[in-house]
Nucleic acid binder design. Structure first.
Lengths: 161, 161
DNA sequence: TTAATTTACTTAACTAGTTATGCAAATATA
DNA sequence: TATATTTGCATAACTAGTTAAGTAAATTAA
């Protein structure tokens, strides 16, 4: 770890380092669910959390909230439907829309799942211990990117030399 | 951005947030190279940086340095070979090993590429402005994970309740 | 010096995202 | 009110990573 090339490269390896950590966490989570014999995916918890605030959602609402593409949402939702965690009905006033709701199975399993997510939350707190300000820093980084994205900045920086 | 669900969820959305940022940067970088008509991938710069310190490398050395799986390295290297940025020769004393080196084409293109990477480095510095300590925080986070990974922590936290 | 183990690389099948494209329903506009 | 635009969802093809399993060469151990 001491002579970690990502550490040496600093700014140049920032993205790769974020990816390394998030991939590591993702595959850990998949492995965890497998070991606990839960037929759910990492990131479904985000969907469940959204349903806490509003019991009917559409694909578009989810894509907007997560800031991921619609095709990505469709894949997640289709899998949740296939595993019978979600049910969908057509909107009566706008037949393009699918109204999504948690199924009975989902609600039934919720207490068990929430225990795992709570343990997950604690685990993240442990991992971030002493470095909790990273959460606000990530906010600010996303803010900077939304003002001018990476590509635009590089093009600008290529010009002024 | 103000009512960003990831922000509300705090610890529970930490991994998703890292993924969101790193994906955003990755696709920006791909788009950038396309616009600049450079037939290289994001992350090749890490390989090039390794070759600055040592002009012959093996697959395993790269996988170890980046802490990514061997199949991932093979895919990157094969593409670099296919695009003629790398050449490989069999190790004389150990025929399992491939000795990898930058090609003449790679060395020729290096000055042009380095301009882009330098503009990239500046762009990351801009994006992180005022939040540079995130780099050390990421070090510490990877340190924590290496002591006990996410899965192990969740299993532990599930037990002690 | 044969047998067992480890190492270096490879291949296959999968995953969670992307962009590009398309279609049909709803809405806005001439 | 016909036409143009926008919206909501869907599909296809691609990408950068993963794990699992396998092969052949090198090394270690009996």
């Amino acid at each position: 770890m001491e002579n970690d090339i990502f550490r040496e490269l600093k700014y140049l390896a920032f993205t790769a380092r974020l990816k390394r950590i998030s991939d590591n966490m993702l595959y850990n989570a998949k492995d965890l669910y497998k070991e606990l014999e839960l037929d759910i995916d990492p990131n479904w918890h985000l969907i469940f959390m959204m349903f806490k605030e509003k019991d009917t959602l559409t694909m578009t609402e989810i894509a907007d909230a997560f800031q991921i593409s619609q095709p990505a949402v469709i894949k997640i939702i289709n899998k949740m439907k296939q595993k019978e965690y979600l049910i969908s009905t057509k909107d009566a006033t706008d037949s393009r829309k699918q109204l999504l709701q948690l199924s009975a199975k989902a609600k039934e399993n919720l207490p068990k799942l929430e225990k795992v997510w709570e343990a997950g939350r604690k685990s993240i707190m442990e991992i971030l211990e002493g470095n909790e300000t990273i959460l606000e820093q990530l906010d600010e980084i996303e803010n900077q990117i939304s003002k001018m994205n990476y590509k635009q900045r590089v093009l600008k920086n290529l010009q002024d030399d």
